[in-house]
Design a protein around this nucleic acid. Sequence first.
DNA 1: TTCATATGCACC
DNA 2: TTTCCGA
DNA 3: TCGGAAAGTGCATATGAA
Length: 500
Amino acid sequence: MLLSRIAETSQSVASTRSRITKTERLAATIMEMTPTEVLIGVSYLSGRLPQGRLGVGFAAIRDVDVAPAATARLTLTETDSTLTELQATRGAGSKVRRAELLAGLMSAATPEEQTLLFGLLGGGLRQGALDGVMVDALATAFDAPRASVRRAAMLSGNLAGVAEALAMEGPTALERFGLEVGRAVQPMLASTAETASDALAGFAESFVEWKVDGARLQIHREGDDIDVYTRSLRPVTRSVQDIVAKARSIGSTSFILDAEAISLKGDGTPEPFQVTMTRFAKKSAPDTPLHLFVFDALRLDEDLIDLPLRERAARIEAAVPDDFVIPRILTSDPGEAEAFAAAALAQGHEGVMVKDADSLYSAGRRGSAWLKVKPAHTLDLVVLGVEWGSGRRRGYLSNIHLGARDGDGFVMLGKTFKGMTDEMLAWQTVRFQEIETHRDGQVVYVRPEQVVEIAFDGVQRSSRYPGGVALRFARVKGYRQDKKPNEADTLDTVRGYLQT
DNA sequence: TTCATATGCACC
DNA sequence: TTTCCGA
DNA sequence: TCGGAAAGTGCATATGAA
């Protein structure tokens, strides 16, 4: 029902415009909904989508100008306060979580409204999108074990189907859902560890494998049909025909593999991440070949997700050509692990993954069975400006602009909001207004007087910043009260990280 | 028509 | 993607 | 222990200005 509405609205928009965006499509659909439908949809959306992408959709609901992210954020906040009011009527002072709210909405919804909601989940949004909030809400609304709902949704990649089955048949319907070749599965995620030895300490025996700076791929094959998906489950089969060809040479005709794809230079060292990424743009010729590094198998002739990693690895060794398998060792010796990690770094790779050899594949979970270990660098930089935060950081100065010393001045290298505790936020809100020079919109500019220690993963070329370089994954380690700006690191020092 | 800016969407 | 925080 | 919230950069293309 909803799907056909989306199709109709798409066509009418397409007749007047050259291209329609996902948000426009969504907006058009939302505008035709009844208030109840909007309430259900919006309460889901407000907890679900990244902020910046909602601009057009929410602007349309509120009938305000289609305008930049600022409008979207404002509108999103309004939506939030509407929800808060709703919550307040339920219980004085008691906080109602979004999942509870949603569960209540679903239970109270008419069959027509439920159909719309499930349609929204399955077709209106990203295919296969999954959300902890939704799983929670479904479990509560239909009185099913949370873990079972989660597992069914993760493995089938079909949240809408799970929701519908729960509504029609109840919790017993969950047993039907399992792995399906051709249907992308939420990939297993990793936590972080400081060093390879630290990571190793938690496991009886560990696989230590290269962590390459590429793109994660999930490769499905059933007979002659091969499909490739990104980490976010976007199908990219057409862009990566060289990967498809490699997959075809694997000694099995029914599999689901978890792998990394990366462009390497002639000497085997990695190309910058941006080079790999251009292969995944909509229109790009495969002029830079992608290497394939398989590191896990959810299925190889039979389902493997409930077998330990050591067994899955053995099956991979037997079926996948060595060239396509991630270099790794099985060990419990910290020295061996550290040496392997050092060698990976020497090859130019990011670091290593350390994985519990006895762990099962838990789709979509960020557990501690997989640990990523990458060395962090630090720099002492100078704060050039700060932006007012939003959401839970409203009223605080949050996102800081970072500068490196260059001659007598400072050159901006990027921004960061990561690594700040609530205490630091409170402190910097006062501090940066003390050294404020002027304001422009959300930005408070300051005299370059405050030094901050910044951790980062690497330096990349940038067309955005005047120094031609930007920091990758910059986060605050702490403010340096003991250093003067003229002791901060220089632009040349930063550029020095480009090669390594 | 060309160039610059804005926007959407992808990812680590 | 990293980090902090609350349930 | 888990998941939400905070917002990053780069590239391609659509739109607006010259």
